[in-house]
Simulated assay, not measured.
Amino acid sequence: MEKGLIQIYTGNGKGKTTAAVGLSVRAIGRGFNVYMIQFLKDRDTGELHTLSHFDNFKVFRFKSSKKFFWQMNDEEKDLLKKQLKEAYEFIVDVLKNNKCDLLVLDEIMGVLHNNLYSIDDIIKLMDMKPEGMEMVMTGRNAPEELIERADLVTEMKLIKHPYEKGIKSRCGIEF
């Protein structure tokens, strides 16, 4: 890719990861190598089953606990912090060695808002991005400092959600 940009999908609405996956499908269809690094996610999702059939799409997950961050005890939080340190080092290696054409950092804003990475940590990653690599970051509440540095920012705005009616996540639709 001649010129890779930085995209952010943020907001309190549904669809941030779905948009990143859609972009990934487009990229692998054109022969690009895609790395998706998922933070704070451990649920089995339909898109990962489909995308696992493509040699040029790789997903990496850095979370072993099935709990939300606020439900974890101190020992579980310490383990997660260790895993996220390894994830950061992995991302630095991907960027330094230009290992993919599209790098998706899925739910990195959640890591930021749980104070597991700092804004400076994420800015360093943005600054390390090779010229020909596209970077996508997802998650709620993207801070202004990151929005200013990005080339494209899309906000998913919640207007109505079936959860408000007591409808839980559905297999094949939400996961």
Rank of each mutant, 00 (worst) to 15 (best):
R30W: 11
G31S: 12
P130Q: 04
E174L: 04
E75V: 13
S52H: 12
E144M: 08
G31M: 06
L79W: 02
K81R: 15
E131D: 13
G31H: 03
W70I: 01
L84R: 13
K3S: 04
C100Y: 09
K160L: 11
K124H: 11
G4Q: 06
L48H: 14
D127F: 06
V136H: 10
R30L: 13
S118E: 05
I147T: 04
R170M: 08
E155M: 02
D78K: 10
G110R: 05
K3W: 06
K14E: 05
Y117C: 09
D74M: 11
K168F: 10
T154N: 12
A142G: 07
G15Q: 08
V25T: 08
R61L: 09
N33K: 15
R43F: 09
K124L: 11
E148R: 15
H113R: 15
D55A: 14
R30H: 15
N98V: 00
N115K: 15
G110M: 07
I123V: 13
G139F: 10
S65M: 05
K66G: 03
L146I: 08
D120M: 05
L103R: 02
W70K: 08
L152K: 07
E155L: 02
I8R: 06
V104E: 01
V104I: 15
V21W: 14
I159F: 14
E89P: 05
G11W: 12
M126A: 06
R140A: 05
I119G: 03
T138E: 05
D42S: 13
M137C: 11
M128T: 02
N12Y: 14
I91E: 01
D120Y: 11
Y117Q: 07
N98R: 15
I8F: 13
L116W: 06
I91W: 00
V111H: 13
L84V: 10
G132Y: 14
V59W: 01
I119L: 04
V136Q: 06
S169A: 15
K96E: 14
D42C: 10
I28L: 15
T18M: 01
Y163A: 06
S118M: 10
I122F: 10
M72V: 00
L103T: 07
M1T: 07
Y163S: 03
L125F: 00
I122G: 04
Q71I: 00
D106C: 05
I91L: 07
M36I: 08
L95W: 00
R61M: 12
F175D: 14
L125Q: 01
I173E: 03
R149L: 14
M133G: 06
I167H: 03
N73Y: 11
N115I: 03
S169E: 09
Y88N: 10
R43W: 09
Q71R: 03
H53R: 14
K124P: 02
R140G: 08
N97E: 09
E47S: 04
E174K: 02
R26L: 08
Y88S: 09
K63P: 02
F32K: 12
L146T: 06
K157Q: 03
